[in-house]
Amino acid sequence: MAAPDAPAAARPQLPPARPKGRPPRRKGNSAALLLIAPSIVFMTLLFGWPMVSGILQAFGGPQGLTTANFTRMAQDPYFWSSVGNTLLLIVVMIPIQFVLALAMALLIRAKPRGSSAYFYIWAIPLAVSDLAAGLVWLTVFTDRGYLNSLLASFGLDPVSWLAYDNYPSMFGAVLIAEVWRATSLVFVIVVAGLQSIPKDYEEAAGVFGANFWSRLWHVTLPLLRPSLQTALILRTILAFQTFAVALALTGQNFPLVVGETYRWYTGLQDPNVASALALVVMAVSMVTAVGYLKLLRDQSEAPR
């Protein structure tokens, strides 16, 4: 936060402004209330109420409040494998996505020919729904899909990429599809962040002897920190919710946590356990977001 020699106490503490001719307070308050009323109503109806009822449902049972739903959830054989799969996916996918997005954004910043066209092309997956993306990649990886046709044309034997017993290739297929679908979000945020950094800093670094990698490490990345932080939080939370791509590609063979929520709700018709699962996802997402904010806090608090 603050640098050591600028403690908060040293800053001028402005006394609360209190104009002599006091304006009628009541009126000011009611105007403020009136102004935030729409968003309060909106938040209560669309956010607060579903959340409260979700929490109640998660702890709900035939004899009042209980934690039995969580026990059932944890005892389900698919639960722990879905947690493992989700974590593995996040740990492998997010670094790949950030490296790719950063590389693409830096490429666009270098302004090669047709760089604006690249931007739109790379941003397209942003508009593709995850189920559609899953189906597209299914046509590639399925047993008689494009990939096996390609192999056949080289005289190679087809591979059952999405088979239950071929975990690495199944994971790979989900990973590729998710990377393809969701990298553009990171990309768009990083491009916006890069555009707000004046070129001077990189130029100065170059003059003082920094090569491309040093410039990236010592100048561009630190200045890009706020954007990276935003992208990381968004992307991680969304990654916890990965679901439709895996469902389209593998059905139940590659369970993910949110997929389990779906299965409990529709397949097993148990909304209470489904809510318990959803609650776990929410809690983990919140903890992650706070963790990132703490971890990546900007020490310089320097405005650019």
Binding site: P198, D200, Y201, A204, A205, V207, L223, A302
Partner: peptide, 13 residues
């Protein structure tokens, strides 16, 4: 070489 930039370009971070 080394340079003083008209815009300073002092690294904010």
């Amino acid at each position: 070489l080394s340079m003083v930039f008209q815009s300073y370009a002092v690294f904010p971070h």
